[in-house]
Amino acid sequence: MDNNLNETVRVKADNINFFYGSKKALNGINMDINANKVTALIGPSGCGKSTFLRLINRMNDLIGSSRIEGKLLLDGKNIFDKDVDVVELRRRVGMVFQKPNPFPKSIYENMAYGLEIKGIKDKKFIDEKVFDSLKKAALWDEIKDRLNDSALRLSGGQQQRLCIARCLVVEPEVILFDEPCASLDPISTRKIEELIIELKQFYTIIIVTHNMQQAARVSDYTAFMYLGDLIEFGHTEKLFTVPKDKRTEEYLTGKFG
């Protein structure tokens, strides 16, 4: 795997094994994820890419009978340590899901949620953060006049950008995208991709995608996973043009997947 000494490693996977019950879903994953870059996780269904992604903000905690071995370091601190506050972790590591999942509340309420549950009551501060994040997510101009409308009345693409904006409000350092365009049309997809590239100057971004072209378009690094193994990981350009592993090449050329 290529390592670039100029980069800061934000997330480091150190020999991670993950089990659902007795089924092993991840097989000794080692990966260094750099700050302010987009890292794409690709691979066929069931390869473990979403499972790996969901470890980074510990969403897997919600699944009973799962077990984990190894370390996952965020800025050098193992997030599976007992003294890690998972609520705090999830504020630092935001997540955008496969299907847009705004709450059945108004646009504004969706945006303010992350701050309100933090116990922030200062209305002016909340307003500021909400407006700021909507602007960052390039959604402000489209919805500034309808902040009190139900978020469910937005189009799918707008809903997804709202979910991105909602996650920016709490000022995460890392943002996880779990196939964010899986349910969107090409135009909305393009907007999200542009947004992701825009956001990487502020955040460390990890994106799971089924769409190889998408990985090629948005990411700086790509990891190819297969059956729970990390097969190949490196600069996106190199991985796509001169894959080292035969399986990577076969997947990229559509021999399986």
Binding site: N57, E88, R90, R91, F97, N101, P102, G114, I117, C167
Partner: peptide, 8 residues
Amino acid sequence: EASYALGG
């Protein structure tokens, strides 16, 4: 999931 992911 959305709520948990936002630190709820």
